[in-house]
Design a binder for these strands. Structure first.
Length: 377
DNA sequence: GGGATTTGACCCAA
DNA sequence: TTGGGTCAAATCCC
């Protein structure tokens, strides 16, 4: 069983705090658009917002799972990545079930080893009709070893282990569970890091995985996805070139959660007006570089395919820095806020939301701080 | 024939 | 006792 999320706060307090933070962000938005607004006022508002975020984090910090960001491979697929550094919920055989791994260690040792396995969860949304539901290609070779009907779940859970488990002793496993409410949404829980030679170039980052050509996506579909991702990254690079973020006045940069990069999804109604001094951002999503520290699980941020956001943030690049990358909060509607809180406080339904908080479709990770000096360089 | 998948049985922590 | 996780034989597929 998952370790229960233990909210040491009242949900209403958290909601109030988030709302207060949003109000502050809206005020900041107004000041950002007002040419006569004093710089000190903007800084004060930004500082208050950060304090509000810190307070929210303190409220949420009792959880066990850490949302490390989003990962996107293509339009139509959205991936939320969460990580739980230590697995306290593993079932007895989740990692040492094979005879090969039972023989050397005692069961208690194996259990401790298993509990130390890193565990993280992706939520992958796929487009219906693309034919990738069964594969959910994630670039490692997986072998299915079981399937179980889970109590209360509409769909069975599939159990996969690394194909190289026997040959190379790779202990990585994953579980694939289709969402009850949204059949296009899959929750993939990974356990253990790949130690096989088939791993990607960054063996310490949990999510990177390699395809299994024999039963995964067809080459055409995969190429299509990769091309789309590449196109997105080109957009990103263009934006990074055009946007210069000044951080010299940012006095709280050491605690600000900043994504690795920003991404404008080409399919949404974002409006990037490069011809004017300001950038009008109706959808300002974040895309990661997968190059964070070895202890983070692919802290990439992706574009959830939300649309119709009620808030259009118009900022100049220099002002952008004063908001420290958290301006996504400006786009959160009341409904979104309620959903965020609901998700963060409903451990029974979503055991991986421990430190999860989300603004306008982007989740932030309390353990994930980023020194933005040199960011966008 | 060999590797992958299916599925009923088994194990064991809660 | 229950239910999640895994085993392993049977079956499928290339």
């Amino acid at each position: 069983m998952e370790q229960a999320y233990n909210p040491q706060f009242e949900t209403k307090d958290l909601i109030n705090e988030v709302r207060q933070g949003r109000e502050l962000a809206k005020q900041l938005q107004i000041h950002l658009n007002a040419p006569t607004s004093a710089h000190g006022t903007r800084e004060y508002l930004a500082h208050k917002i950060i304090l509000s975020f810190d307070k929210i984090l303190n409220m949420l910090n009792s959880g066990t799972s850490i949302v490390t960001g989003y990962e996107s491979f293509a339009s139509g697929r959205e991936v939320r990545v969460t990580e739980s550094p230590n697995s306290f919920s593993a079932s007895p055989h989740s990692e040492d079930s094979d005879q090969d791994f039972r023989s050397s260690d005692s069961k208690s040792d194996a259990s401790r080893k298993r509990k130390a396995m890193p565990r993280w969860t992706k939520r992958v949304k796929i487009q219906p009709g693309t034919g990738i539901e069964g594969s959910l290609d994630d670039k490692y070779n997986w072998r299915k070893y079981g399937q179980k009907d889970i109590l209360g779940a509409k769909y069975p859970r599939g159990y996969y282990r690394c194909t190289h488990r026997h040959a190379q002793g790779c202990l990585a496993t994953k579980q694939v569970q289709k969402s009850d409410n949204d059949p296009t949404l899959f929750e993939i829980t990974y356990r253990g890091r790949h130690t096989c030679s088939d791993q990607s170039s960054n063996p310490t980052a949990p999510p990177p995985e390699r395809s299994n050509p024999s039963r995964s996506l067809t080459a055409n579909v995969r190429d299509h996805l990769q091309n789309q991702q590449q196109n997105s990254q080109e957009v990103l690079l263009n934006f990074k070139t055009d946007l210069k973020v000044i951080t010299e006045d940012l006095d709280c940069h050491d605690q600000i959660n900043v994504p690795t990069s920003f991404y404008f999804p080409s399919t949404s109604n974002n409006n990037i007006n490069n011809t004017s001094e300001n950038y009008s951002l109706s959808h300002f999503y974040m895309l990661g570089d997968n190059n964070f520290g070895s202890n983070t699980a692919s802290p990439s941020f992706v574009s959830p395919t939300t649309s119709g956001s009620n808030y259009n943030l118009s900022v100049s690049p220099s002002n952008l820095s004063n908001f420290g990358g958290n301006f996504q909060a400006l786009q959160a509607s009341d409904n979104e806020l309620n959903e965020m809180i609901s998700a963060a406080t409903s451990a029974a339904n979503s055991p991986t939301v421990g430190l999860n908080y989300q603004f306008g479709g982007v989740e932030f990770n309390s353990n994930f701080t980023f020194d933005n000096s040199g960011f966008f360089s």
